[in-house]
Design a protein around this nucleic acid. Structure first.
Length: 862
RNA sequence: GGGCGUUUAGCUCAGUCUGGCUAGAGCGCUUCCCUUACAAGGAAGAAGUCGCAGGUUCGAGUCCUGCAACGCCCACCA
């Protein structure tokens, strides 16, 4: 073995071996209970970002541990066709050649996207392999593959037949850039400083006027009424009269509607039913015409009169100027309000009347809430329930049709002869109503999230009754960032409960988003994103994974990996490497599992007991999805107990022919279990080291450790003896911790001559400086047998020793006073639990003793 | 306009649910040590009025109330 660990060389050689051994298939544990995670499918044409690296590292820890625990662990990989995102990418490519998708036509365009998908779609899976994620590639799925498309059509048709999918003319969010409708959550609201324009609408009978305010002046071209609150006395006379719409010179009525807030602005609102949801509702109630003045292209329609053909923002200015010129403009004031932007193109979204397909969500919401209330499903951390409930209870129907070409075609056909709408899984040959043969297929595709919502069961083969579906639905846990709870998690729950009758998973683990050092979201557009593959290249995939896992505390945002942390994680790999290198020179034949000694030497019993405790702790923490705590605990145990302590303690026994076999066995077993415990987090280096130390099969499929507990009387007794002896020794010689004091423990019968001078170096190696007490300073147990001490040398720095003692006295006095004050408090004595009072008394007397001894030492120093 | 989160050492964060040894970790910093798995290492050490103000309690970083700063989410503020 090399003396330093080279991640690049090691990491490149394991993934293929795992895969070809079938290690990631649930079939490796044929008798195990099923355990299943489906991957949140990344965009097929994208590449892995830091958020994926975190999300997938967490899932890999879960799935690898379950696999080692003997469960039939399945992690289903796959990708999402990502409708708008992917279509935009290919359209940009076309644009570079001066073409639009309309130039080449739908069929050719879709073919081009497929080609693009074939070209670049492998990138994600390549990156996942590089980072070591143990998914079952034989079960890989794509949201647009044949099986999932069948699932989508089945769901659509069923929901349509149940009346939960309908087609309707309503106000939707329209992105003029993408030229498609969007759902509510694809709109991002941004606080924007705009203008509040107040306009005077004169009454048609010539007496007076009514003033209305708007932030979108151009929409006034489509006004078909002015509305006021029915109880608003200021406008009681106005209701039922007509006003003249400036510029358009149209007579429009003043109507009453309870939704109008009399407190806002003038209390009168212009009504544009075709371009505002509230206005649309008012229009419905008052039977108003809806005039569409902004088109799908973002330009003013012919209905906009003289402004027709103008861009919507240009029209806003032009309308204001025209209003000013005609004297109808009352005022223009600065006004901050939130403006919707398309989450894909960032273009300003236009509310617009449009004929679209919707999912009626109300009947689906109840079960998706109850599943949490009755404990069938839970969020980890639980605090997400509140916002989830609040959000679910205020849902509006989900607009699912998109005017795109890349996606699942909506399975609807229209008969122009009799206006029949036919929704079916397979294309009908003739109208089911009138028998006409010429049916027109719906041009639109479905929202990408429609197919994602089916992912937990569609990937397992639904609607077919496959073995996988029976075995792995419900899944076991879902891991995702909070940013797609509404997009994805809520919809999976609704669909899973509706179609499978069971929650898709009992646990929903929500982690934070990866933040940059200054706490901002990482994003390509802000140009502050760090490519995880770059970091994996520099520090190793293991280092990246460990760093992310140590940062992932539940309920918190995840700070982006910083160079120092990554470096620390890489150094840990090196430390492990060297520990195994040491062990491998002393140990042969480490068993795959078991091999725990029944009557270990004291230092062995100590580390084995710690191994037992730490394994239990780590198991508990991982069961609670507390990855940061689990791996921090493990890291501290491995480094400061196993490497710094235990390996040092083992050196003497390993050299002693009588004890070396036993010591070697323990070293082998302990380090083997450390490798096992770390394997889910850092699979590459541990697998490599497993091959060096154990060499029996793959670590990836080795059994999870379950080390037994040990009693520690013998070693603890010895440990105490050692400390007592050290103290006595120092007291006798008037030495404090600042003394450069070196001591060793020698076996019974040994004499100084036996050890000195030939063994001087060895003694120095084994010797340690003793602190004042356990926990203060460091004390090492060098041998199970403590018989005496040998001083090899020593000196005291009187000044610093005096300073130290003085500070120690002050601290001890504080402690004593603190304890005394507590004990002097009557209610403390009366009401605190007895053991607490006892402890306090113990503290008091310990402090007093300590003060005495410290003062004595001070005096000795003079 | 609602809701949520955060505020603890120079930096990044645990600890708060379930109140109890004089508050912890990593990194950084100071001193010492290149000795046999590892200098990409080892040993020792300094460093915190736990955001502010009240309250409950024998006892508060932890529970309650208010405030402040920062961040996030939701919302048909015309």
């Amino acid at each position: 073995m090399e003396s330093t660990y080279d991640p690049a060389a090691v990491e490149s050689r394991w993934y293929d071996r795992w895969e070809s051994a079938g290690a990631f298939r649930p079939e490796v544990n044929p008798d195990g209970a099923p355990f299943c995670i489906v991957i949140p499918p990344p965009n097929v044409t994208g590449s892995l970002h830091m958020g994926h690296a975190l999300d997938l590292s967490i899932q890999d820890v879960i799935i690898r541990r379950k696999r080692m625990q003997g469960l039939a662990a399945l992690w289903v990989p796959g990708t999402d066709h990502a409708g708008i995102a992917t279509q935009n990418v290919v359209e940009r490519e076309l644009a570079a050649e001066g073409l639009s998708r309309h130039d080449i036509g739908r069929e050719a365009f879709v073919e081009q996207v497929w080609m693009w998908k074939e070209r670049s779609g492998g990138r994600i899976s390549e990156q996942m392999r590089t980072l070591g994620f143990s998914v079952d590639w034989t079960r890989e799925r794509f949201t647009l593959d044949e099986g999932l498309s069948r699932a989508v059509r089945q769901v659509f048709v069923t929901l349509y037949d149940e009346g939960l999918i309908y087609r309707s003319n309503r106000i939707i969010n329209w992105c003029p850039h993408c030229r498609t409708a969007l759902s509510d959550i694809e709109v991002e609201h941004e606080e924007t400083l705009g203008e509040l324009v107040t306009i005077r609408y004169p009454f048609a009978d010539g007496e007076g006027a009514i003033e209305v305010a708007t932030t979108r002046a151009e929409t006034m071209l489509g006004d078909t009424a002015v509305a006021v609150h029915p109880g608003d006395e200021r406008y009681a006379d106005a209701i039922g009269r007509e006003v003249i719409l400036p510029l358009m010179e149209r007579r429009i009525p003043v109507v009453a509607d309870a939704e109008v807030d009399p407190e806002f602005g003038t209390g009168a609102v212009k009504v544009t039913p075709a371009h505002d949801p509230l206005d649309f509702d008012i229009g419905q109630r008052s039977g108003l015409e809806a005039i569409k003045v902004i088109g799908e292209d973002g330009l003013i329609t012919p209905a906009g009169g003289q402004f027709a053909g103008m861009d919507r923002f240009g029209a806003r200015t032009a309308v204001k100027e025209a209003l000013a010129a005609s004297g109808a403009l009352v005022s223009v004031a600065e006004h901050t309000h939130s403006v919707g932007h398309c989450s894909r193109s960032n273009d300003v979204v236009e509310p617009m009347l449009s004929l679209q397909w919707f999912v009626k969500v109300e009947p689906l919401v109840g079960p998706a809430i109850d599943t949490f209330r009755n404990g069938e499903t839970r969020f980890v951390p639980k605090s997400w329930e509140n916002s989830y409930f609040h959000w679910m209870e205020n849902l509006r129907d989900w607009c699912i049709s998109r005017q795109l070409w890349w996606g699942h075609r909506i399975p609807a056909w229209y008969c122009d002869a009799c206006q029949e709408v036919i929704v079916a899984k397979d294309e009908p040959t003739a109208c089911t109503a009138c028998g006409a043969a010429n049916l027109r297929a719906d041009e639109d595709v479905l929202d990408t999230w429609f197919s994602s919502a089916l992912w937990p069961f569609s990937t397992l083969g639904w609607p077919d009754e496959t073995e996988d579906l029976k075995r792995f639905y419900p899944n076991s846990v879902l891991v995702t960032g909070y940013d797609i709870i509404y997009f994805w998690v809520a919809r999976m729950l609704k669909m899973g409960l509706h179609f499978m009758g069971e929650s898709p998973y009992p646990d929903v683990v929500i982690h934070g988003l990866v933040r940059t050092a200054d706490g901002r979201k990482m994003s390509k557009s802000l140009n502050n994103a760090v490519d995880p593959l770059d970091l994996a290249h520099t520090y190793g995939a293991d280092a990246l994974r460990l760093t992310l896992l140590q940062a992932a505390a539940p309920g918190h945002e995840v700070p982006a990996p910083q160079d120092e942390w990554l470096d620390a994680a890489r150094r840990f790999g090196n430390k492990l490497w060297n520990a195994v290198r040491f062990a491998a020179t002393h140990v042969d034949d480490v068993p795959r599992a078991g091999g725990y000694p029944t009557d270990p030497a004291p230092e062995a019993a100590w580390i084995l007991q710690r191994l037992h405790e730490v394994t239990q702790q780590v198991d508990e923490l991982l069961d609670e999805y507390r990855f940061s705590d689990a791996f921090s605990t493990l890291y501290a145990f491995a480094w400061s107990e196993v490497f710094d302590w235990f390996i040092e303690l083992s050196k003497a026994p390993l050299r002693d022919p009588d004890r070396s076999a036993e010591a070697a066995a323990v070293v082998g077993v302990v380090i083997r279990d450390v490798l096992k415990l770390f394997h889910p987090a850092i699979p590459f280096v541990t697998e490599e080291l497993w091959s060096q130390l154990v060499g029996d099969g793959l670590l990836a499929t080795a059994p999870w450790p379950d080390p037994p507990a040990y009693d520690l009387p013998r070693s603890m007794e010895t440990f105490q003896e050692l400390i007592v002896a050290a103290r006595r020794f120092r007291a006798e010689h008037g030495l404090g911790p600042n003394a450069e004091l070196t001591m060793v423990v020698v076996d019974a019968g040994d004499t100084v001559e036996d050890w000195w001078p030939e063994q001087a170096m060895e003694l120095a190696r084994l010797s340690m400086t003793f602190g004042e007490a356990p926990g203060e300073g460091h004390t090492r147990l060098v041998s199970g047998k403590v018989e005496g001490f040998v001083a090899l040398g020593g000196a005291i720095d009187v000044d610093s020793e005096r300073q130290r003692l003085a500070a120690a006295v002050a601290t001890a006095v504080d402690a004593r006073d603190h304890a005394a004050a507590k004990l002097g408090n009557e209610s403390f004595r009366d009401r605190a639990p007895a053991e607490v009072v006892e402890k306090e008394q113990g503290k008091l007397s310990a402090a007093e003793q300590l003060i005495d001894s410290l003062r004595a030492q001070l005096e000795e120093l003079g």
